[in-house]
Design a protein around this nucleic acid. Structure first.
Length: 907
RNA sequence: GGACGCUUAGCUCAGUUGGUUCAGAGCGUCGCCCUUACAAGGCGAAGGUCGUAGGUUCGACUCCUACAGCGUCCACCA
């Protein structure tokens, strides 16, 4: 498995086989599996269960990459990291999918009947469901697959029943005849949160309702004339003097020819329309409450498909609501009762699943009383027991939780958890965990008829229990999961989209605080909350800033991306682009960032292996070999440990894009661009073999450490290289290796300053080369004139670096004015540097170069001078700041002087 | 109508207690290079009065206010 020879490493990294190979290896060795381990602290994440009908999209890529990064990072940091995967049964979505396939056979679910239909859904689930779970493997997710759950598993159904009964017994679940959001296509109620509103331009119709016995008429304005058949009153504002005389009179409902009263109610806005409103209690939520206040009847005039029912005049019966609207308007117009029609923009609510315009509809539904659940759930977020990242979502949460409305949990579907309520023949009912329990509760004999409620529960009624139901609560004892539940609950981090803050996040907090005490045995909120941190992910948008979605067709196909760029590259790229709390603008081509980086890592590995094979490696003693250290070594060790600190810090704050940037910069620019280039001068120089082998060992140590640092983000390539660079034990994996711990004793400011000088010299020579268009292969000489107190030997010892990185083949020093006549010059930290360019130099180019540099330094100098001559500044600014400015003044003026002298020497 | 977020190089974005060798990176552009890890690469260069207008301060990309543009969430008048 390990110890490749260099020849097997191709020049360009090809991820496909590598990724497949290692994922199989990890899974085969059950390296993702977490078990209760008292010696380690647990770190748990439960996956936001994707719909069982779902396929991977870019949002999942981001969301699951983040979770995998957290899990892999914590695992390497010594935690027992457990990522629990699973899928959601997704009531409406799944039922729709199966109904669609039935339609192809010319059947409806009613042709099959409930039992057969549900069987059919299970069959579908077994065959096609959970594709997304397989796709997550492609992405490299290290989920504990032994713990995979489905929200319709028997154990999760038990949790649903338990919770329902408890809430029912506590009086928090009730049944009522209320207006709900009805989807005429899915034939079910949906919750307030499942309705999406969008502005739409429609018409506002003014309709005349004659008033019996007078020539007067009430003129009402409505956007939905078809609901007029359900009108039971006309309302005016009690303070509206225009209509005071009409209150108590009867108006005639046109077309239906029914008398309805004119009533007064505060709800009516005097300014809108005519100030008179038709009241339709069964088809409008506001009208419903008006009707309640005035004890009005609630005639329902549509059926479950929003077709007019038998409560309307015969000619309208059976018509779709929009056809009925058309016909009613025509009839009203014919009778001269349609006064006028205006354009009107208003918000239309649509079903979040099928986009059908919802119909407010009066029906019997089950509700959860939310206030008592919301209060403690709000508290733990406000007091920081649960933290939101970014924090601003706390305000949104607070607003919702203080204005929370009761949750309609019944759905008129077949696919889902059946409501555990049982009715006797004479109409008594109770909630119960089982039919047997219901019989006991109701005092009903085993052979007496008992009927279970036909409806199922909202999908979220099972997902809100997810953090503990995954451990088979309330049957955890029986299932042998008691220890797991105690050890892995609460979870640590929840990674989810802000869109489901209310649907899911808020409700999980409520359910955790409400039900966890029964297994944690404490009322302490911090032990009962379902998670400690919530990370809200970015929205992935396209180049035009539009949200990526299936319907817009503007999203790349994730699996194609992975096939083309590699999973590591896709993971790296999306994290690199995703700042905490900000949306991300995504385009396929961006994956070149990750792909190129992977290739860079790959080639660094090739370089090291090649040299190891040729030179050999000193035997391993500590994490980092510290024999034969020189400047570059001390510097890279210093840089590495500061990088570790930065990564740790950014990780704690969930600044993952910062983590990727820090590592990227370190690896590419510090390790590859400088360090690797610098050790070449030693590896190919004339040092003793022992020193060279120490250099190789150290470079490999650092590479090993960098691979571990990178592993959570790019799991595959790091495993491949980690296994190749050193012999590893059988079944070992980088994912089980320890992350390096930052050690401040390696961080050395003097070393970094010294290195900065060497880098500046090299960069100055390179800049001259670049400006003069001198080929990199052309060898150059450098003459230096040092400022007072500087020792030439302290610079000469870096000769090898200058030779290797700037192609400086001759370095000499002068102390007088004998500078080479035709040379380009630079000033590096006060030391002057001359590059003799006899025959190559273009005087004008060099003069222009120097002029620009002189300008730059002059403007710096000027601003420092301005500051120091400002009395207020000197008097009020802190002493250190003033001193610093004073130092700058000296440096700048010295540098400027030298530049000007060298400029003069050219003319 | 209410709340929140964003506005820095052509593009996508960094910029942590306010102190100009921090105005930066990547992509793109231009120039020189296939230098024995990497052209998916190396080196260098050009390019921005940090949305607008005020204010606080010795000093603001960084704090405050207003405005503009973009975006998100919530509520909603029939």
């Amino acid at each position: 498995m390990n110890e490749f020879s260099t020849s097997t490493l191709t020049k360009v990294y090809s991820p496909a086989e590598v990724e497949k190979k290692w994922y199989e290896y990890w899974e085969r060795n059950r390296l993702f599996h977490a078990r209760v381990n008292p010696d380690k602290k647990p770190y748990t994440i439960v996956i936001p269960p994707p719909n069982v009908t779902g396929v991977l999209h870019m949002g999942h890529i981001l969301n699951n990459t983040l979770q995998d990064v957290f899990i892999r990072y914590k695992r390497m940091k010594g935690f027992e990291a457990c990522w629990i995967p699973g899928t959601d049964h997704a009531g409406i979505a799944t039922q729709n999918v199966v109904e669609k396939s039935l339609m192809k056979e010319g059947k409806t679910r009613h042709d099959l009947g409930r039992e057969k239909f549900i069987e059919r859904v299970w069959e579908w689930k077994r065959q096609y469901g959970g594709v997304i779970i397989k796709q997550l493997r492609t992405l490299g997710c290290s989920c504990d697959w032994d713990r995979e759950r489905f929200t319709m598993d028997e154990s999760l159904s038990a949790a649903v029943r338990e919770v329902f009964v408890r809430l029912y017994d506590d009086g928090l679940i009730y049944r009522g005849n209320y207006i709900v959001n009805w989807c005429p296509k899915d034939h079910t109620a949906i919750s307030d949160d499942e309705v999406n509103y969008s502005d739409q331009t429609g018409k506002l119709y003014y309709i005349k309702y004659p008033i019996a016995g007078t020539s007067d008429a009430a003129i009402v304005a409505t956007t939905r004339p078809e609901t007029m058949f359900g009108d039971v009153a006309v309302a005016v504002n009690p303070t509206d003097e225009r209509y005071a005389h009409l209150i108590g009179k009867m108006a005639t409902l046109p077309l239906a020819n029914k008398p309805i009263p004119i009533i007064a109610d505060e709800y009516v806005d005097k300014e809108f329309g005519t100030g008179m409103v038709k009241i339709t209690p069964a088809h409008d939520p506001n009208d419903y409450w008006v009707g309640q206040r005035h004890n009005l009847p609630q005639p329902v005039v549509m059926d479950i498909s929003a077709r007019m029912n038998n409560n309307v005049p015969p000619k309208y019966r059976g018509l779709d609501r929009y056809e009925a609207r058309k016909l009613a308007l025509a009839d009203l117009d014919a009778q001269g009762l349609l006064v006028k029609t205006e354009d009107h923009t208003y918000a239309v609510g649509r079903c979040y699943r099928c986009e059908t315009v919802i119909e407010p509809y009066l029906s019997d539904q089950w509700f959860v009383r939310m206030k008592p659940l919301a209060e403690p759930a709000l508290k733990v977020v406000l007091d920081g027991t649960i933290k939101f990242y970014p924090n601003r979502w706390v305000k949104v949460y607070e607003h919702w939780m203080t204005n929370v409305r009761d949750w309609c949990i019944s759905r008129q579907l077949w696919w889902g958890h059946r409501i555990p309520v049982y009715y006797t023949a004479d109409g008594r009912f109770t909630a119960a965990r089982s039919e047997q329990e219901a019989r006991i509760r109701l005092g009903v004999q085993p052979d007496d008829p008992l009927r279970q409620d036909e409806d199922v529960l909202d999908t979220w009624f099972s997902s809100w229990l997810w953090p503990f139901s995954v451990h088979d609560w309330p049957q955890h004892e029986k299932a042998g999961k008691a220890q797991d539940l105690a050890y892995f609950y609460p979870t640590d981090t929840l990674v989810t989209a802000p869109e489901i803050l209310f649907f899911w996040v808020a409700r999980m907090i409520m359910s955790g605080l409400r039900f966890a005490p029964s297994f944690t045995g404490t009322d302490e909120p911090s032990k009962n909350i379902p998670f400690r941190d919530v990370y809200f992910t970015s929205i992935v948008r396209d180049a035009k800033g539009r949200k990526m979605s299936k319907s817009l067709g503007n999203s790349p196909e994730p699996l194609d991306l992975i096939a083309e760029y590699g999973a590591d590259a896709v993971r790296f790229t999306i994290l690199y682009l995703a700042p905490l709390g900000q949306d991300i603008i995504y385009a396929k081509e961006k994956n070149e960032i990750g792909r190129n980086f992977a290739n860079k890592i790959w080639n660094a590995g090739r370089f090291l292996l090649m040299n190891r094979d040729q030179i050999g490696e000193a035997p391993k003693t500590a994490e980092f070999n510290t024999d034969h250290l020189d400047l570059a070594d001390r510097w890279i060790l210093s840089r590495f440990h500061s990088t570790l600190l930065d990564v740790e810090n950014a990780m704690e704050n969930y600044e993952i894009n910062k983590v990727t940037k820090v590592i990227y910069d370190y690896f590419w620019h510090d390790y590859c661009d400088w360090y690797v280039e610098m050790i070449k001068s030693r590896l190919y120089g004339d040092e003793p073999a022992e020193a060279k082998q120490a250099v190789i060992a150290r470079a490999l140590d650092l590479f090993d450490a960098a691979l571990r640092l990178l592993h959570p983000i790019m799991p595959f390539i790091t495993e491949e290289l980690w296994q190749s660079i050193r012999p590893r034990a059988a079944n070992d994996s980088i994912m089980r290796a320890a992350m390096s711990e930052p050690d401040r004793s390696f961080i050395n400011k003097q070393v970094e300053d010294e290195m900065a000088f060497v880098q500046n010299v090299i960069e100055s020579v390179r800049a001259i080369r670049g400006e003069m268009s001198i080929a990199p292969s052309k060898e150059l000489s450098v003459v230096m004139k040092l400022r007072d107190g500087r020792d030439a030997d302290s610079i000469k010892k870096y000769d090898g670096y200058f030779r290797r990185l700037a192609r400086v083949t001759s370095l000499s020093f002068i102390t007088d004015q004998s500078r080479p006549r035709l040379s380009a010059t630079a000033v590096v930290q006060g030391d002057e540097l001359f590059v003799p360019l006899e025959g190559i130099i273009d005087i004008e180019v060099e003069k222009a170069r120097l002029r620009k540099e002189i300008e730059r330094v002059s403007s710096l100098l000027k601003s420092v001078q301005a500051k120091l001559s400002n009395e207020n500044f000197v008097a009020k600014a802190p002493k250190e700041v003033v001193e610093k400015e004073q130092e700058k003044l000296n440096t700048f003026s010295e540098t400027l002087e030298k530049l000007q002298r060298n400029y003069a020497a050219l003319s």
